[in-house]
Design a protein around this nucleic acid. Structure first.
Length: 228
DNA sequence: TCTTGATCATGC
DNA sequence: GCATGATCAAGA
């Protein structure tokens, strides 16, 4: 038998990655943090990415800020997802920042959204705020790729949103656009601005935006897994 | 109650 | 400011 310990190397195969992720299921965040010698914050208010960092350590992801997939050699992205007692998502899922300029000729096929979501290791984690952070449990992982239908849904929304961005309508886009993919602010605060295209084609400064998966989409893909 | 819009930490 | 990791919390 072997004691559970963080992967000290990048996993060499999907099988190795998935096996390690499956080993984590059932443990609490407190247990995993202790074994990894990672301090536990009192809550996530000032450490929103803490769970993601913890699981990156355990799974041997190249931690930190690299503009590539978590497991580049495997082409796999890691996403933790907070869920309620029934396994339903409590939050939307950030995918990537939306390019607001320089989009001539960009297509779904070459988009960052499609690339990010090509293969994702989803790890559900208990997220109800009534549960102390250290006592929240990690769930069973799901190694996922979009089905034909899912990719179609994503592409439709992405094309609608990108059309609006290219046509200078970015400031008229709200989180209500899109069935499964939405565009929302993604910034340090409301004073962080970036360049975009205005109504008359002129450069404007606006809030950076990100693509997010809506809860109905992630709920469905998780449910499919657990109801098999 | 739930979603939308806003925000937090960190490294470069 | 942008990239990584996301959740918070006001208001509908």
């Amino acid at each position: 038998m072997s004691l559970l310990s963080p992967l000290r190397h990048s996993p060499q195969s999907e099988a190795e990655l998935l096996a390690q992720a499956q080993q984590l299921a059932g443990y609490s965040l407190g247990e995993l943090a202790a074994m990894a010698n990672l301090p536990i914050p009192p809550d996530l208010k000032r450490d929103k990415g803490w769970i993601g960092v913890l699981l990156e350590i355990w799974l041997g992801a190249s931690a930190g800020s690299k503009p590539e997939q978590d497991f580049a050699a495997l082409g796999v992205e890691l996403k933790t997802i907070p869920v309620d007692r029934n396994g339903r998502p409590l939050e939307t899922t950030f995918v990537c920042v939306a390019p607001l300029t320089g989009n001539s000729g960009v297509t779904w096929e070459t988009s960052h959204v499609r690339h990010k979501l090509k293969r994702v290791l989803w790890i559900p984690v208990e997220g109800e705020r009534t549960i102390p952070l250290a006592e929240r449990h990690v769930g069973a992982p799901l190694l996922w790729s979009p089905s034909v239908e899912e990719e179609h849904q994503l592409r439709m929304d992405w094309e609608e949103l990108m059309d609006l961005i290219v046509l200078g309508q970015v400031e008229r886009i709200t989180a209500r656009h899109g069935e499964v993919l939405q565009l929302r602010p993604k910034a340090a605060n409301s004073k962080a601005l970036t360049e975009a295209i205005g109504t008359h084609g002129e450069p404007i400064l606006t809030l950076p935006r990100g693509f997010y998966l809506k809860k109905n989409f992630t709920a469905a893909l998780l449910a499919q897994h657990f109801l098999l």
